[in-house]
Design a protein around this nucleic acid. Structure first.
Lengths: 333, 333
DNA sequence: TTTCAAAATGAATACGTAACCATTTAGTGA
DNA sequence: TCACTAAATGGTTACGTATTCATTTTGAAA
């Protein structure tokens, strides 16, 4: 019965009522006589009617869609956050449009996102001086950044990056390592900027001249990290500890170490930041710095975004405190 | 300028043309005089006009949305497939609605999905005798299953599960292991059913009585896998090799082994199926069976789905061949 | 019965776009 | 200059719903 293009009008005709009544049966049944509800429900059943959510969106000016611009899933941080965000959004009855941003596709993603009617946007792909910020504000859609922030200093949830960098570095130093190095990302990204700042602060507090330690700033894909690792191996004095700005980098460094026959932590100490789920796996057991709270950063962010959507909050500026998670990739020198 | 609710009508008025012309400028500019295009584009710019994709969807009966129902990302298989699918779909200019199905939320996901206008659906959450299959066919939306199939034997892309189970088991047997066991999932899922069948076939071909080996069928969450592992440790004769139906299970077994102080492969051989990206990490180095082809199963599936949408194919029934990927979690007994 | 408020229903409209059809304008060849 | 075709533009409508406002029906109090 029914074919595929049944509308509420068809149901109305079939049930002998007006389209308005059909709409009411589905949305405000308390305003409809029980007997009428029955008639309409029967018609809906028999015609196999399904409401058109697009038409509903058009008239209600609400799509029920949240747009998520995540980083790529080969970065385990985004595995955790995407899981938290998607599940939360769906549990609230909304849908999620997901994008995985990388260096080469961000512009096309932004074009698509800016032309898409969504009720809100949650993203982690913003640069500190990104124009996108202003475009989004102009567009008038509520949005929130997680893990990164914009220079305008609004609508973000992050961990205390400076403190995280400090704690990680300090842990390494306190284990007695003298020859250490840093692998971070581009400084146009607030996260990397902050964590490196923490690294420098820790060196300063230990009276170590920043000029005597090697720091690498790289794109965070495998190829570029490998290139950095090769450089580290060529260093005149090989470091005994590698501080990575993220667990993703640290875990890839782990991979490269083992590939080359090095042992961790015997040959190299490795420490990361983020405390991603994967770092807890006993094959990895990465020492890292992460959220004090049990919640994932993605969860905190999406929760806040809904507050904004419900006008409970106007502006989110949240920096979560962190602590050390010592595991097996670091040890006394 | 312009506020947030600028429509093509507003642009038309501002530019002194008809709404039809505005629409044409955006969709078929070759039918519009260059001078007019200029006028309209200027108006679009000044009014900060963005087309309403919802209204467009309504009239065109196309949403540009693909619905993806994936398994949870803590299963690395779905990390790989979700990455491939989302990126492919976005590259084609479509959007992706993502759901992560688990045991407790599938019904609510299905309800949402069935009420959502999407151009097509790609999913991996179907049971062999699932009613959802018929609901989707009734709904008339093109859909494809990856990694699992339905008894109706249509619209799926899978690996050769029987062969995969056979190869994995045979690899273990050929290494000289006598005491082996199997950890699989519920047999209402075609994948687990097929892989276990391959396991049995291999035993038979090696003249081993199936009754002498332990097989466990479990839900694939951490808690249940741990329970199974505890049972294995209590077995009268402890197996020297564990065949896992998926890499996800195998990697969790790896975790549990190390947690308990066992060494792999010294104390336990472990083999998986799927050849997920994570299995290649040198900290894991999981021996596994996977696609012969370089492409991910998710990629193959989404590619096929677009063929269906473009009416190039009517029905997909694809079983990909597999091979062994020997790594470091298995060795001669 | 009559009266009148409350309950139940319906008719008409808006949402913003693309598509269809009709009309005007421009351009070409005779 | 005219006739005629092609190019360019505009008017109107459909898409399927929720909403607003108007109307009818119901039921209880008088």
């Amino acid at each position: 019965m029914g074919g595929f293009l049944v509308s509420s009008k068809d149901v109305a005709k079939y049930a002998g009522v007006s389209q308005t009544t059909v709409s009411r049966v589905l949305n405000t049944p308390e305003l409809v006589k029980p007997k009428t509800i029955e008639k309409v429900m029967k018609a809906i059943e028999e015609l196999n009617y399904v409401p058109n959510d697009i038409a509903r969106s058009l008239v209600q000016k609400k799509t029920g869609i949240i747009t998520l611009i995540s980083g790529p899933l080969h970065n385990p941080f985004f595995v955790d956050t995407t899981t938290a965000i998607v599940n939360y959004v769906n549990a609230r009855g909304y849908k999620v449009n997901v994008y995985f941003g990388a260096e080469d596709n961000l512009e096309s993603i932004y074009n698509s996102v800016l032309e898409t009617k969504a009720d809100a946007i949650i993203l982690s792909s913003m640069f500190y001086e990104d124009d996108l910020f202003f475009k989004l504000e102009k567009r008038g859609i509520p949005f929130i950044m997680y893990n990164r922030k914009h220079q305008e200093n609004r609508h973000f949830v992050e961990i205390d990056n400076v403190e995280a960098g400090y704690i990680a570095t300090n842990h390494i130093l306190s284990l007695g390592h003298q020859d250490i190095c840093w692998i971070g990302g581009p400084h146009e990204i607030s996260t990397f900027y902050g964590r490196y700042k923490g690294f420098k602060n820790a060196l300063k507090d230990s009276a170590i001249d920043i000029k005597t330690v090697s720091s690498f700033f790289t794109n965070t894909n495998k190829t570029d990290i490998k290139r950095v690792f090769e450089e580290i191996l060529k260093l005149p004095t090989r470091p005994t500890a590698i501080c990575a700005a993220t667990d993703a980098i640290a875990i890839e460094i782990l991979n490269l170490c083992l590939e080359r026959g090095f042992q961790v932590p015997k040959d190299f100490n490795v420490i990361g930041i983020d405390n991603v789920e994967l770092s807890k796996h006993h094959s990895i057991a990465l020492t890292t710095v992460g959220l004090e709270s049990e919640k994932s950063l993605g969860f905190i962010a999406i929760e806040k975004l809904f507050e904004v959507m419900e006008k409970k909050s106007a502006c989110i500026q949240q920096t979560e405190s962190v602590r050390l998670f010592p595991r097996n990739t670091t040890c006394e020198k």
